[in-house]
Design a protein around this nucleic acid. Structure first.
Lengths: 217, 217
DNA sequence: TGGAAAAGCGGACGGCAGTCCACTCATAAT
DNA sequence: ATTATGAGTGGACTGCCGTCCGCTTTTCCA
């Protein structure tokens, strides 16, 4: 994470040809302070129990500074998730190297990776979801991580159709519909309230999405 | 809606044999005032722009009274949705009268009803979702309307399996997974940001859930 | 190197959610 | 009718989010 903020909700990447200014040294230091303080407080007391005021105080910056970087707690959590997200993305891309396997197989693997990511980052993901309310609601769907997931799914589906693995599909609709059952809030409800095992969720998702419901033949 | 609050997030129904006291007259009047005031303010300025203080003031009650009835704005919205929800539930049950059709057909109809419900009650449903954050998150999944939806789906799936319409299914997992693509936030993203038509969402949902992805035969 | 412009800073502030608790009053039992 | 009970009431209060804006620091360019 050399220059932070590349993937999160943060500032858009500079357009080609646009004059861009390097991040100021003091600002960079403050950003590290903020992330470190937030990580420590979250680890100690849980994300929900920590207020933005508190994070600012612990980081030794004013609230204005904190909010300049991270528009809300969700954005801050996204930044903290950044590294894990990249790792997961890398693992997915590695798996794609195997050109022998069909697109639907790749899709199934991809879904398993997403479930594992949910499992490992549940608290932060849940906090991101919490912070996304009202007009921020579709910011989640527009965020880089979600758009990356869409891109991957779209690719799998296109290839599956092209290779004759699938009948013709409404890809634009399906892309989001396939991701919906992996929603972190639903995931946590299934894991905690219903007591379903992670493996069962993976298997169920794959079977539903890939095999469909109706009896074969 | 004779005695209100039967379906919403409100107080649980009295257990059998439990001494229950009728709602006090003044309390009942206040509840009507609150619902009327909220409906009017919401209609005039949109749900998001109206604060709980404002509703209390407009209803001529104190905040304590308002919060006693409705623990948060989401619960209030649920109460306002109550009548429409019942209507939708009634329409679904009517459709079930036709015993000729298979369970999967019934399921497909059911999904169409839910999409229509989303379309017609988007703002209030969205507000309910907004208000469900943090520890209230799974209150949504435990709410009567959602549990009713689960119950319906479970029934369809059981019958479909019993009648041989489906291969064996992990019903406990599938129930929630089938509902996930109908999530109001996703629905609004698809309708507004992606510009998908309602009919397309209905068709896509039905095909995904009922026909699956893989090429037939 | 000097200075202008941009970026960064932070605390005061406004508004809202939700809690609390002392008081009121409808209801039911006697 | 009287009274005991506890549901109902409402406004003051706390804490938090997010904004605003005058001040400071850094960077860039001449």
């Amino acid at each position: 994470m050399v220059n932070g903020e590349k993937v999160g909700i943060g500032r858009a990447l500079p357009m080609a040809g646009e004059r861009t200014r390097a991040e100021r040294r003091d600002a960079a230091e403050n950003r590290q302070q903020i992330l470190a303080a937030a990580a420590e407080l979250f680890a100690a007391r849980g994300v929900e129990a920590v207020s933005m005021d508190e994070i600012a105080r612990a980081a030794g910056v004013g609230k204005g500074t904190l909010y300049r970087r991270y528009a809300h707690k969700g954005a801050l959590c996204q930044a903290l998730l950044d590294e894990n997200t990249r790792r997961m993305q890398g693992a997915v891309l590695d798996g794609l190297r195997d050109r022998q396997r069909g697109a639907l197989d790749h899709l199934a693997d991809f879904l398993a990776h997403l479930v594992a990511h949910n499992e490992e980052n549940a608290e932060l993901l849940s906090a991101v979801s919490d912070a996304a309310f009202g007009s921020r609601r579709d910011a989640f769907y527009r965020s880089a991580p979600y758009q990356w997931q869409r891109l991957m799914i779209t690719g799998f589906l296109r290839r599956a159709v092209a290779d004759g693995e699938c009948r013709d599909l409404d890809i634009d609709y399906l892309t989001d519909a396939l991701l919906a059952p992996l929603d972190i809030d639903l995931y946590l409800f299934q894991r905690r309230a219903l007591g379903l095992e992670q493996a069962r969720i993976v298997a169920g998702t794959q079977r539903l999405l890939i095999d469909g419901l109706r009896a074969r033949g």
